[in-house]
């Protein structure tokens, strides 16, 4: 993203949104995205949709380990401890 436009349009914002959220944009490019967001409610909604998507995907997190896997791993740990 080396090229610096004077402004970015919506189609460019949707391609930069992950770099923007990951804080991976050059400061000049991040400033262009922010300038755009100050003027465009559509892109504000889009960025919010991406944030909501990330949050919703995060709800799939589950620390549970299948019972049979857990049992056989514990057995392996006990074996290992005895060697």
């Amino acid at each position: 993203m080396a090229e610096h436009h004077e402004h970015v349009n919506c189609q460019e914002v949707v391609e930069r949104v992950t770099d923007y959220l990951e804080r991976a944009l050059h400061p000049e490019d991040a400033a262009l995205v922010e300038q755009h967001l100050n003027l465009c409610d559509g892109c504000v909604s889009y960025v919010d949709q991406m944030r909501t998507t990330v949050r919703t995907v995060g709800r799939l997190h589950d620390d549970a380990v299948p019972a049979d896997a857990r049992e056989s791993l514990l057995a392996a740990f006990r074996d290992w401890r005895c060697t």
């Binding site: 919506c10 189609q11 465009c40 559509g42 892109c43 909604s45 949709q49 909501t52």
Partner: peptide, 21 residues
């Protein structure tokens, strides 16, 4: 979903995405 190149608002939303809030 964006205005076509050559149109007055090329690259801008034809219609805004919905506000999920």
């Amino acid at each position: 979903r964006f205005c076509a190149p050559g149109e007055a608002f090329a690259g801008h939303w034809c219609r805004y995405p919905r506000d999920w809030q």
